[in-house]
Amino acid sequence: MIDTVIRMSVWALATLTVVCSAGSLALAARGAGRRRLRDRWDGLHRAVVLVFAGFLCLVVVQWTTLPVALWYPTPLAVAGALAATAARWPDLPWSDPVEDGGGARAARGRRRSALVTGAVLAATVCFFLL
């Protein structure tokens, strides 16, 4: 009984993280105001974080003990959020150093975050698969 609760809890936490991240990214891609995507580096960073969360969901959840149907919300959420980001892509500058976005330093920070997160994702995938 306790084992089942733990397995379901891990699945719920992992999937909720993916769904919330996906929702947040999709809203940022479509929205205006302070939470909108600032630039393409911002979009890339959040997209990589989302893919990372989806990958962790695949490798840490004990799927042999859970219905396979519980996996599909993850790729659906990731696909939806990435599609929204891609649709917004043509309207985004590569780097947006405007003052209300935090200025040039914040723009450089978003680029750095995207690159670092991408490297962490690549290293994690290699850790599990090699």
Partner: peptide
């Protein structure tokens, strides 16, 4: 762009399904 990005993710999601 949306379809180009979403389609491979969905295909990967099915291919990698536990």
């Amino acid at each position: 762009l949306a379809v180009t990005v979403a389609a491979p993710v969905l295909v990967a999601g099915v291919a990698l399904a536990p």
